[in-house]
């Protein structure tokens, strides 16, 4: 078993006293697509935002490729690509300009920016809109632009929050192919989704999150066993069974030590 590319241990996070994460732990490995599924408010987006450094946990450990991201919260991002749920984009730029801008921020060599941007726009069927402002694009096209921005620097870790929302079936197929190709090339892909059939087909393993905890992780066979749904049980059956069974946890929150405490 290789070392995990992403390792989350005992993550705790609350907003104004309302717990969002209650001891969530998770591991994702190179060359795999790990799906993160769960009901609304389960803590998926909070988990992803902590992983990409947009939120700080109240407690817990976050390691990316072996580095504690709470100790060095910047360097690991060089290997990270991120697509948020409902990404806000600079509407005043064209897709070409935006991807070039992200390329610069992501330290892509200047002489590669034009070629890489052009390649992504072509692959994602955005070339005809390359020189119009993002404001004039459809929702699906904007999602594709955000996806292109997440992969422009060919990251080895890709974090996607509901990446397929608003994208047409052909576009979804395109994105899924791309994700599988990246995983095949050794990247780790962590994708949060509500589309269980997509998760079932796309992800090698799935983590089911409920009430801020990871209640089950594994491939479909392992989850079926855990949920006792039999060999014919779909991921939807598994998901419904496990989330129904999982009560609101009665857990004691770790005490804070300083700003936040590490394990």
């Amino acid at each position: 078993m290789p070392l995990p590319a992403i390792e989350l241990q005992q993550l705790w996070k609350s907003y104004d006293g309302q717990p969002a994460l209650q001891g969530l732990s998770l591991e994702a490995y190179p060359s795999e697509i790990l799906g993160l599924i769960g009901p609304n408010g389960a803590g998926k987006t909070t988990t992803l935002k902590i992983l990409v450094g947009l939120l700080r946990p109240d407690y817990g450990i976050v390691r990316v490729q072996g580095h504690d991201v709470l100790v060095d919260p910047v360097a690991y991002k060089a290997e990270l690509g991120y697509m948020p749920e409902a990404p806000t984009l600079p509407e005043y730029l064209t897709p070409t300009e935006f991807l070039g801008y992200v390329g610069r921020i992501r330290n892509l060599p200047k002489d590669r920016i034009a070629a890489r941007t052009s390649e992504l726009l072509k692959v994602l069927d955005l070339a005809p809109k390359a020189d119009e402002t993002i404001a004039s694009l459809s929702k699906g096209m904007k999602a594709k632009v955000a996806f292109a921005a997440a992969i422009i620097h060919e990251p080895s870790i890709l974090v996607l929050d509901e990446p397929l929302i608003g994208i047409d079936p052909a576009g979804q197929h395109l994105l899924k192919e791309r994700l599988m190709a990246m995983a095949g090339a050794g990247a780790t892909v962590l994708v949060s989704t509500h589309q269980l059939d997509t998760a079932e087909r796309l992800c090698r393993r799935v983590a089911i999150v409920n009430h801020g905890r990871n209640i089950a992780t594994g491939d479909l066979a392992a989850l079926r066993t855990q949920a006792h749904t039999g060999e014919e049980g779909s991921l939807e059956d598994v998901f419904l069974r496990l989330t129904e069974e999982a009560d609101v946890p009665v857990v004691e929150r770790p005490r804070r030590r300083g700003w936040f405490r590490r394990g």
């Binding site: 990409v52 450094g53 947009l54 060089a78 990404p87 806000t88 984009l89 921020i105 330290n107």
Partner: peptide, 10 residues
């Protein structure tokens, strides 16, 4: 829009 900058290493 600063999420773009903040999720990079720069």
């Amino acid at each position: 829009n600063l999420w773009i900058v903040l999720t990079s290493a720069k």
